[in-house]
Design a protein around this nucleic acid. Structure first.
Length: 596
RNA sequence: GCCCCCAUAGCUCAACAGGAUAGAGCAUCGGACUUCUAAUCCGACGGUUCCAGGUUCGAACCCUGGUGGGGGCACCA
């Protein structure tokens, strides 16, 4: 039980004793005391004055006095208006720290026996990954780590969109203009090679459309009649009917893409427990539509197309099956939901997909609910906002996308530049140095993308993202490196620190309490991060802790402390902060170096 | 046209589900390295929380109406 809960219980008891009323969980609202007031926790008495039948301030004072007499943890209090500010005694804080320090499972909540599937990444195989994918991947991976730390069993899955007209466009352009080029012969990654032909297709296609328009054809018609688009559609039909040479080319080109993706994923530090391919799932879902028809949930129009009417739920009618009997996006997603459930029997299933698909998932979940799927209540769309550039929205056709590989290169290069300028890595081998640049560059990038609430649209300013000062990944990493240096030096000097004795400590630097306070609250925070699927609060924690620790570090001598026991404590406190930083950063997928 | 989301310091973001005098970083200005890593720390400057009403002890947060921005409304995925 954390300190907040203990205090809540004590308040409940005191209140019951004083006023004969038992407060509910919600009424026991406890918040951190604001900086400008004395105290650690604040209990707001406005809402409970109706039970005490006294003014809020009087209520606060009475509860405060009662606590001061009976509480095992509260040392003092003050009441301002309806705010009861409670100061936890130093003894208690130190005691709590001791407990945290010796807790080997710090930052890990007990297993809750529940399984959650997190689907993320979901790339198309016709172009390389870009900045938008980075937010998606980092988010999905981080949320998976957070859920795991919060006690869930987590399965990370990736549903690769490896088929469809967009792939055929790349294939067609490759056939026409590729001259048998390969990633090896071209010297570029497979995904970039395929992306090149996707762009090529678009260019050539536009030319054709322009030519047709010049002959007097309306633009809309020209867009449909251009030979290239017709050829691409034909190729898709050939693929669906299993035409050998098309399938062979498709396999070859997709494999190039996967080889490229693998490199990118590895560098990003994300991985999956299972990869689904749309080429294997796109036909699923038809049976579910049939089932819905039979149950009278869906209906068939005269042309044979199948629809769901969700107007009673405030939504539109939605197509589920085309007139020719082929599936659409929704059909497929109905099918994969069942498939994933068969595979995992999950309690929760999270889809990490951008907010432009809010409506789609809203409909999907309602349909599955209507169909009576047992897992329907556990579905969650983790809807995240677009990443904008200072120049506006990213558009692949306009060449304004920020390529993932390029971006990671740049981040690492900048890390290298800064590191060399500072000259702090004497004795590093070249390999170690390069690894450090990766850790710092990726750390900066991940932190930049994850510190913002996922739901919010965010601006990616390349110059700011590459900053290593202030509220950034490298700032936190640096704090960890400092602590690691303390630990190294302590061990070098033969200073043991596990054996500190908190009972002998009577006074502490003013930063010690807030540091302990933050770590005390960490598990609560982790719980919140998991419930709300948001790495942002973990990022905020790591930053706040690092910031507070840095103050401690600059204002207090640690290894030069003369009181031997207090010195041990300070080292232990540092080590524990280091652990908390490492742990929280790992939930963001960010590594922390021992030297930088 | 209909539906959904957003609006907080010059800029990028917070604000623990309605709590006290709205906080950080960047930028600007000023201070701190013969010291355990200055990728750090301290200070200053910076606000009508888009506007107008409402709800109540209390509103950035909830309600109503505006304004501005984004997204969605395909037999595409």
């Amino acid at each position: 039980m954390n300190l907040g809960h203990i205090i809540q219980e004590e308040i409940r008891e005191a209140f019951q004793h004083l006023f004969g009323h038992t407060l509910s969980e919600k009424e026991l609202n406890l918040l951190p005391t604001r900086k400008e007031f004395e105290g650690d926790y604040t209990f707001v008495t406005f809402p409970v004055a109706r039970y005490s039948k006294k003014h809020p301030e009087e209520t606060a004072r009475l509860v405060g006095e009662a606590l001061k007499n009976t509480s095992k943890v509260i040392g003092d209090f003050n009441a301002v208006k309806g705010f009861l500010n409670l100061s936890v005694s130093l003894d208690t804080w130190l005691e709590r720290f001791s407990k945290t320090y010796n807790n080997e499972n710090f930052g890990r909540l007990p297993l809750n026996g529940k399984l959650v599937v997190v689907e993320f990444s979901s790339p198309n195989t016709n172009k390389p990954l870009h900045l938008g994918h980075l937010r998606n991947n980092f988010l999905g991976y981080s949320v998976s780590m957070i859920l795991e730390a919060a006690g869930y069993k987590v399965e990370k899955v990736n549903l690769v969109n490896d088929r469809g007209i967009h792939i055929c466009k790349s294939m067609l352009a490759y056939l026409k203009f590729g001259h048998g080029e390969t990633p090896e012969s071209a010297g570029i990654k497979g995904d970039h090679l395929i992306g090149k032909y996707y762009v090529k297709f678009d260019q050539e296609y536009k030319k054709q459309v322009t030519e047709l328009v010049e002959t007097g054809m309306p633009e809309e018609e020209a867009a449909k009649e251009a030979p290239l688009i017709k050829a691409a559609q034909e190729m898709l039909r050939d693929w669906e009917s299993g035409k050998e040479e098309v399938v062979a080319l498709w396999k070859k080109m997709n494999n190039w893409v996967y080889e490229g993706f693998d490199i990118t994923y590895r560098r990003m530090g994300v991985s999956f427990d299972k990869i689904y391919h749309e080429s294997e799932t796109y036909l699923l879902g038809k049976k579910i539509v049939e089932e819905g028809l039979k149950k009278g949930l869906f209906y068939k129009k005269d042309d044979g197309s199948v629809w769901a009417d969700l107007s009673d739920e405030g939504l539109d009618e939605k197509l589920l099956l085309r007139a020719d009997g082929t599936s659409v996006y929704m059909t497929q997603d109905l099918g994969t939901a069942d498939l994933k459930y068969e595979d995992y029997h999950y309690d929760k299933s999270v889809y990490v997909v951008g907010n432009e698909q809010d409506y789609h998932f809203n409909v999907l979940f309602k349909l599955l609910k209507k169909l009576g799927r047992p897992y329907a209540d556990g579905l969650y769309h983790l809807s995240y906002g677009m990443v904008d550039l200072p120049s506006g929205k990213m558009k692949s056709r306009e060449g304004t996308v920020v390529d993932a590989d390029d971006l990671m290169d740049e981040m690492a290069a900048t890390a290298k530049k800064h590191t060399l300028e500072l000259g702090k890595i004497d004795g590093f081998t070249e390999e170690q140095a390069n690894e450090l640049y990766e850790v710092l560059g990726l750390g900066a990038l991940k932190y930049f993308l994850l510190k913002v609430d996922p739901k919010k649209r965010m601006l990616f300013n390349p110059e700011e993202s590459i900053q290593f000062h202030g509220n950034t990944g490298p700032f936190i990493q640096y704090t960890h490196a400092r602590i690691a240096a303390i630990r190294r030096k302590a061990e070098q000097d033969g200073v043991t620190y596990d054996d500190f004795d908190v009972k002998k400590i009577t006074e502490c630097h003013e930063t010690v309490r807030p540091i302990i306070f933050m770590m005390e609250n960490y598990e609560q925070l982790l719980h919140e991060a998991a419930e709300n699927y948001t790495p942002a609060v973990i990022a905020q924690f790591a930053y706040d802790l690092a910031k507070e620790y840095n103050r401690f570090y600059t204002e207090e001598p640690i290894l030069k402390e003369e009181d031997e026991n207090y010195k041990k404590f300070k080292v232990a406190l540092s080590v524990q902060v280091g652990r908390a930083i490492r742990e929280s950063m790992s939930l963001l997928g960010i590594k922390v170096p021992d030297r930088m």
